[in-house]
Each structure stands twice: as C-alpha cells, then as structure tokens.
Design a protein around this nucleic acid. Structure first.
Lengths: 341, 341
DNA sequence: CGCGAGACTGGGAGCGCTCTTACGATGCTG
DNA sequence: CAGCATCGTAAGAGCGCTCCCAGTCTCGCG
C-alpha cells in the first residue's frame, strides 16, 4: 500500500511548518478562538501550502463523533427506488441533516450477509446515530443499537418498546378512508393491505377492519388481500379480490402504488372506477394525481416524517440522552375522482 | 456525553479478562492463526462475556482501511429515486461489493453545501474508494480524489483524463437506433436528448447526428430538443418538436423515461405510434415493456456497468495502484412495436 | 515598578487498535 | 543430547488527532 494512501500532511507537519505546536494548529483548524491573528495566519498559510486535510478517522477516535448519520432501509433496490415514499422521506431527512452539517449516509442491506455487515458497521461508531425505516417483522436491530447506547430513531412504529419513533396515525388514516367509502354508499368494501410484517401494514388493515365494524358490516376474509406495498402486488391482489368477491363495490389500498396496480386490474376486468368500484389509496404521492382516474388518497406528511426523524435523532446525539420519544403525525383524506369526488 | 457512547469493552479489557495480551486478542478477533486452540477458546469466551465489538475507527486509523466504499450520485432525490437506471446500477454494484465484504454507502449531495461536506468526507479516508455516477459538467471531484490517491471509478465517461471509468458505447448505441429508424423508411428523424452537460447526453446526441449524416440527411436544429433525462422533460420536448416540425415521422429519445413522456405527448397530439411516428428509447429498462405500445430501445447492460465499476474499484483498492483503466460495454438494439416491430 | 489576570501557546497523555520485534518454550534433526 | 527451527505469546511503538494542564507573555492597575 502506498504511503498513507497519498493523503498529504499531518497536523504535526503543519505545526512544524508553521513553527507552532500541534495544539495550536488544531485550534486554528477547528476554528476555536484563543489564537492570535498572526499565528492563525501563519498556520493557515502552512495548511494551504501543504494541502492539509484533517484525518477524520483520527479525530473520531478521540472525539467519538463522526458527524455522519446513517439511514437504513432494508429493502431490495427495486423497491427502494420504485416506491415514491422514499424520495420524499429522504428529502425531509436530508434537509434537516444538511442544515446541521451532518453527512447523510444511506445503507440498503440486500440480504442476510449484508445485514450482518451492516450491524457491525453501525455497532462500532461509524455513525453518530441511525435512522431506520421500513422495518420488517421483529427486526432486532433498533433494540440492539439502542442497547449499545447508539441513538436510534425509527420511521413507523417499531415492534419493540423503548425506542424513539415518528409515525403517522395509520389506523385513523385507514379508518377515514373506509368511512368515506361507506359514506358514499358502498357496502362491499375490500382492502389491499401492505406487508403485514410491518406495523404500517398491520395498522392500516386494523383501521380498515375497525371501519367496517363501526358501520355494522361484517368482516369477510374474501375481501382482504395483500399486495406487499408493490404495484404488481396491487394488481395481483385486485384480481384475486375480483375472483373471490365479484360483487365488491369499493376497495381501500394501503398505498397509492398498490392502488395504481388495482386500477389496472379493474380496467382489465371491465369495471368502471368509480361507478362500479370506488378506490382509495394511501400516501397521496405523486402517483395519486397521475393515474386515470386520479386517486382519492390518505395524505400523510412524508417529508415531515423525515424532518421529524432527523430532528429527534439530532437532539439525542447532541444531548447524549436516550429518552424514547414518539411523534405521531396526522393524516388527511383527499377525495378525487376514483371515489366519486 | 455518556462514557464511550455506551460502547462496551476494549481490546485491553478483553485481554485482561482472558489473561492474555492485547496482541493475542487481536489475532483471535481477526481470525489469524498462530494462536493455540486453548487460548483462542478463552479469548472467545471473554469476548462473549464482555460483549466486545472492535472499534473500527481505531482499527481504521492504523490499517488505513475502512472496508467501505462510497457511491456518489449527485442528483435530487426525486430523480435519484425516479430513474430506473439507478436501482439496476446499485444492484450490480452491491452484488460485487457484498461478495467482497465491503460496506456500500450511498451519498447523494443535494446542493452546494452538501457537495462541500461530501468532499471533506471523502477526502479523509472515510471510504476505501469512491464510485461516481451521473456527473454533470466539469465536476472536479473525481480529479481531486484521484490526486489525493483515493481510488475512484466513474460510471460514464468522465470529462477529465486519467480516471478509471466504465461506460457503454453511447455514440454507437444512438447510431444503431437512428440507422434502424432510417432502415424502416423514416426520413424526418427527431431526437430528444438528455442533459447535455453529461457525457452520456452529449454522446447519444453525437450518435444521432452521425446517423443522420451517414444517411445523407441534413441536421436540423428544429429536430433536436432536450428532455434532461426526465419523463416530464420528454413530454415537453416532444410537444416542442411537434410544434416546430409537425411532419416528423420518427423520434429517438436518449432514455426510456423520456421516450415514455414522448409517447404521452404523441397520444395527446393524436399521432399514432408507430404508424405516424416511430419511437426508440434508450436503456431498455422495465419501462420499455410497460408502455403502450412497448418501446424499441437500445439495451445497455446496466447491472453489468455496476458490477464492472465495483470490480475495477476493488482491484485498485487491493493493489494500491492507481492505473486509469477504461471499460466500454456494448449495446444492443431491441426492436418492439413502437418502431414497427 | 510589581503583581495578578487574562490571553496564548506548548507538552503530554491517551483514544483503541495493529503490527513488528523479541523472547521463552517446544519439537525436531543428526 | 546438543543445536536449531518453529510456534505461541508479550511488549512496545505508533496511527493522527484532541484536550487537559501548565507555562509564558502581555497588559493594566495600584
């Protein structure tokens, strides 16, 4: 290996060049005061001349900070890049982190081996804190990290206790969608649920069921199908539903992407939307307005989720405290043509 | 700040607990031989008991490795997550990196401040190497990194010399598309180019022009419009082209996403595809087969670009050599209905 | 003019780890 | 059984940086 990976000077060398001590150079480089203008000048000149860049690894070793924050999204790349939820989330997160001058680092483990490597990476102070979204099942990662004393904030309600998170009221959101469908006279309301090993998925299904129950309608397993939060899944689920319950007159999909898939299946089956079947999606992403017809959808403040996650994490990092906090954001039903707008 | 960020034991402590020296623990932890089975056992027990995880920052300081690789994509989140190119690229990269047990870290600077922070991050050995795609204009980053002795591989031909890169033969690809359009009898062939501050964009435009020239057709500025590699851009560019040259009978779009946008505009304008206007896209992404009609497209081996980038980088990292190498991959025209299949 | 308070600056310890060197303890060869 | 190679281990020297703790220097005031 070539010497020092070509990395130029060290603090020491700058100090010698400027004729001062290491400590003084450190002060100048870190912008602390208590350095005379003259000294500062000559140090800066030396820094410049030698093309000095502080070695952040060495710095991190002593400060125990890296000034970077990890965002972990354990999803296959096609889903990660295919779901309109993530860009909006990342936008929110990166806004706040950028303002705080923290480097955002995105990690997307693709398999078991990746996950193990990731855990090692995160466990050992490679990031000041960790943001976690799209958790499946009983992922032990947030708990493990928290136990290590590493600040963690989860997007969506995590399965475990004692962990900070930002969530939207998914039960309420789904409930409002179902109430709306019932209010426009629909009685055979089906649902295309998301991945049920995720709390978002489970919560939205719960809201759907609660909506039927409070309207005095009976739950029918034939009216429930899962689409795993994917467009193709929505398409497939809709076909299944039509097979199992041809007389359904409404469907609540737990994401716009799945709703878009459902629209395709409905069209193929010759059903008119909303005349024959009313459709409501979830998230109110850009997809909702670009489908034919435009989708009614439960709007959630996706960017704000991201911002809030970042804020919570930064607060934890700064304070060194590990108090679990929850933030639950509200949703709003947006009615468009797909449910008779 | 709480002590040591809650991070448990150190090598030293494990050594004491196991009644051996630091060096021996280090050997066990790193799986080196030259340790007797007995000693190994007792060390492992101590590691386990104390919940020891090596501090990688400390390790990196001495080894000058981090076992992580950065992938930099300077695009706004909507584009990053909206273009089907990136998931495929990332899939390829992450395959190879994962096999080599390297952590992939994704960085997407959103503005000038982000870019400066990023540069500082990369300059200081936070990653063993850097993969760079979607470069715009004369981005100095690859050159700066290379000068520092940091391994860099660029996806697409970089503007500067002396830097390793993986590219597809964009000129040739575009040329084959145009030849095809001409071969099916089209004479008024327009193009929707990508961002021209990117070499991919410029190269594909070059291929288009070369195609016209070699067929003895004259270049006409009214037949060229830019769509910035975005769907909306494709839509807009197509409208412009129809305004400026209503008699055009074919269009070559420098990406499938733009071609999809173009199809929308054509439909809105009442033109039939391919009868009135033949369309060819570029990339042969999943979009190509899901449009109506399916798109002819220049197929490029996107995952393979990713794999090859990762391979080149790993070779550089391992060897410590900094020899600039170029890999240029071939394209293949796939003909579907949009150009008369 | 002496002295204390600041303002600057330097020295040194140490973050947690790797790696080279050195040194007993074995084991093997002739 | 001497002599030497080999193995297993320990000790120590850093990696480049921060930060505490003094030490020096300069003023201003009595």
């Amino acid at each position: 290996m070539t010497r020092a990976a070509g990395n130029g000077a060290t603090l020491e060398e700058v100090a010698v060049a400027a004729g001062v001590s290491r400590a003084t150079v450190s002060r100048v480089v870190n912008g602390l005061d208590r350095v005379s203008p003259t000294t500062r000048q000559s140090v800066l000149r030396a820094v410049d001349r030698l093309g000095y860049t502080p070695n952040r690894v060495a710095r991190s070793l002593v400060t125990r900070r890296t000034d970077s924050v990890a965002l972990v999204i354990p999803e296959p790349t096609t889903k990660l890049f295919g779901d309109p939820f993530f860009p909006r989330l990342v936008t929110g997160i990166s806004e706040v982190l950028s303002a705080a001058n923290k480097q955002l680092v995105l990690l997307a483990p693709q398999n078991k081996a990746d996950e193990e490597r990731l855990q090692r990476y995160l466990m050992t102070a490679q990031a000041d804190g960790v943001l976690l979204v799209s958790l499946h099942g009983e992922d032990p990662l947030p708990g493990d990290l928290a136990r290590r004393g590493i600040p963690v904030v989860v997007g969506g309600r995590p399965p475990a206790e004692g962990i900070s998170y930002v969530d939207v009221d998914n039960v309420q959101g789904a409930l409002s969608a179902v109430r709306h469908l019932i209010s426009i006279g629909r009685r055979k309301v089906a649902t295309i649920s998301g991945a049920l090993d995720m709390t978002v998925g489970a919560d939205r299904l719960e809201g759907y069921r609660r909506g039927l129950r409070e309207a005095g309608l009976e739950l029918d397993p034939r009216l429930e199908a899962s689409g795993a939060f994917e467009q193709e899944g929505g398409r497939r689920a809709m076909s299944e539903l039509l097979d199992r319950a041809p007389d359904l007159d409404a469907v609540f999909a737990a994401s716009d992407l799945m709703a878009a898939g459902a629209l395709q299946s409905l069209r193929r089956a010759g059903r008119r939307v909303p005349e024959d079947v009313a459709v409501v999606g979830y998230e109110d992403s850009s997809i909702a307005t670009s489908t034919e017809p435009p989708l009614s959808s439960v709007r959630q403040p996706t960017e704000e989720i991201g911002r809030e996650m970042a804020r919570l994490l930064l607060a934890d990092v700064a304070s060194g405290q590990r108090v679990a906090r929850r933030v639950v954001l509200d949703t709003e039903l947006i009615v468009r043509e797909s449910s008779g707008g």
